[in-house]
Amino acid sequence: MPPNEARLQYNLYSDFLSNNILVKLISYVLYASILVHTIDSIYLSIKAKKASGSSYVVDKRNRASKWYSRQMMLLGTLIFAFLVIHFKDFWFIYKFGTLPMDSAGNKDLYGLVVASFQDLWYVILYAISILVLGFHLLHGFFSAFRTIGLYNPKYNRIVKLIGVIFAVSMTIGYFVIPFYIYLNV
């Protein structure tokens, strides 16, 4: 799209998302879920640390699990830090800051996003964060099915394949955005 049309469409979509009651309800559930997930993971990590006993035991888990599965606490912490930065730089400014208006009278979030992704360090930070999120999703998708009791050896390969497709497509989709803006806008 030409830049002016892209600006109008992006800002119209942003306005729709921020003013749609169904999207608001889903976002509140998502915020609560992130907080519950964070608290639960901290609790489970502390419990696992206490249960493992001595720290001098040789760790041989790499034979049974992927490195990203063993690093969920680190990856989750990095994602949480990224969310704080993302909310501060975009969500908070959109909701409570003063943004200029576009020609249709909507807040110009497009201009803020494009300006943010003109800094290479920010593009790299965003890209690394999206990769971290991708690894978290790669493990989390399959684990979520096991957690809710939908574990069946007959369907594990299908669930893992769907999880890989989901994690890779989400990662690539969000990974492309900052680089595209940096290189083309």
Score class of each variant (00 low, 15 high):
Gly105His: 03
Val159Thr: 13
Phe90Trp: 11
Tyr31Trp: 09
Asp119Trp: 03
Ala81Lys: 02
Leu161Val: 13
Val36Trp: 10
Ala167Asn: 02
Thr171Ile: 10
Ala127Asn: 07
Asp59Thr: 05
Leu8Glu: 13
Phe175Trp: 11
Arg70His: 04
Ile26Ala: 14
Asn156Ser: 14
Phe142Asp: 12
Glu5Ile: 15
Ile158Met: 13
Ser69Tyr: 03
Arg61Trp: 05
Arg7Met: 14
Leu78Asp: 06
Arg7Tyr: 03
Ile124Thr: 12
Val57Trp: 05
Leu120Ile: 14
Phe179Arg: 03
Arg157Cys: 01
Ile79Gly: 08
Phe16Val: 03
Pro3Ile: 02
Tyr94Asp: 00
Tyr180Cys: 03
Leu125Arg: 12
Tyr155Pro: 00
His136Phe: 14
Tyr31Ala: 10
Tyr126Met: 11
Phe175Gln: 10
Gly163His: 02
Gln71Ala: 15
Ile42Asn: 02
Val84Met: 07
His37Ala: 15
Ile39Cys: 04
Leu44Gly: 04
Trp67Ile: 15
Tyr182Trp: 04
Ile124Met: 12
Phe82Trp: 11
Gln71Leu: 12
Ile172Glu: 03
Val164Ile: 15
Tyr31Val: 14
Asn184Thr: 15
Tyr174Glu: 02
Thr38Trp: 11
Val164Ser: 08
Lys49Arg: 12
Pro100Ala: 13
Tyr182Leu: 03
Phe175Cys: 08
Leu8Cys: 06
Ser18Glu: 02
Ser14Glu: 00
Gly97Asp: 00
Asn19Arg: 12
Ala81Trp: 06
Ser69Glu: 15
Ile172Ala: 14
Leu109Glu: 04
Tyr126Arg: 06
Ile26Phe: 13
Tyr10His: 13
Leu22Asp: 00
His139Thr: 12
Ser103His: 04
Leu120Arg: 10
Leu133Val: 04
Met1Cys: 09
Thr171Trp: 06
Gly53Asn: 03
Ala32Trp: 08
Val164His: 07
Leu74Gln: 06
Ser65Glu: 14
Ile42His: 02
Ala6Thr: 13
Lys49Leu: 12
Gly149His: 03
Ile162Cys: 11
Ile34Ser: 05
Leu17Ala: 01
Asn62Ser: 15
Leu78Phe: 15
Leu183Asn: 10
Leu112Met: 07
Leu30Trp: 09
Ile79Leu: 09
Pro3Phe: 00
Gly140Ala: 08
Leu25Pro: 00
His37Tyr: 14
Phe96Pro: 00
Tyr56Leu: 09
Ala81His: 04
Tyr180Val: 10
Ile39Pro: 06
Val132Arg: 04
Ser129Leu: 04
Arg7Gln: 15
Asn11Cys: 00
